[in-house]
Amino acid sequence: MALAQKRYAMVIDMHRCIGCHACTVACKAEMAVPLEVNATWVKIIEKGPYPSTRRFYLPRLCNNCDNPICVRNCPTQASYKRDDGIVVVDPHRCIGCKYCIASCPYDVRYINPFKNIVEKCYFCQHRVDAGLEPACVEGCPTRAMIFGDRNDSKSEISQLLASNATTVLKEEMETGPNVYYIAADETAMSNVENGINYRTEGAFFKLRL
């Protein structure tokens, strides 16, 4: 490994998450994310029969994978991986073919309806470059989200990763996600649906033909 090669990652501690959506709001404000699309959101599920029932949260954002399928499949190299591991989309290069959205196993990319290009979570690269933390991390009231360089052994994130059992979303996709979860619920991490297939409804009635 190259000396001091930065590799930004995030740990989300589900012991601390209260499902308040502050990360969603911070992200919307910081990145000017339009209505109907989200770069960050908190998935909420209810599990178990009454009375042994509970809510589980799962903050979702781009995993900024080590081996991103979107970058591999982008036909114009508009999606690329920065040296510090952040996956970004060049807004001037993107032609909006949407193949990256179709390829992403995490459904974190979206078309910006105003700019007509693909956007996603960039770990707030402009803030990170200025030495700040991403907006969602700064907005989190319980410090459930911890951001940092996981190659720096003195950073809080690498110590958390070293001392906790962590999981990532869809490990079997071989994408090498950089968002790690502590104590996340397994059902919340899988693609559950309660009988309603939102996607199919959209397929028939909201086709953009």
Binding site: K43, K47, S190, G202
Partner: peptide, 22 residues
């Protein structure tokens, strides 16, 4: 996953990327 005791309260699903044109 087929779990009848699970209720999705909130989740985001983005629009279909590839439509009839494709």
């Amino acid at each position: 996953m087929d779990n009848t005791d699970v209720n999705v309260v909130y989740s985001v699903q983005h629009q279909l990327p590839l439509v009839m044109y494709i």
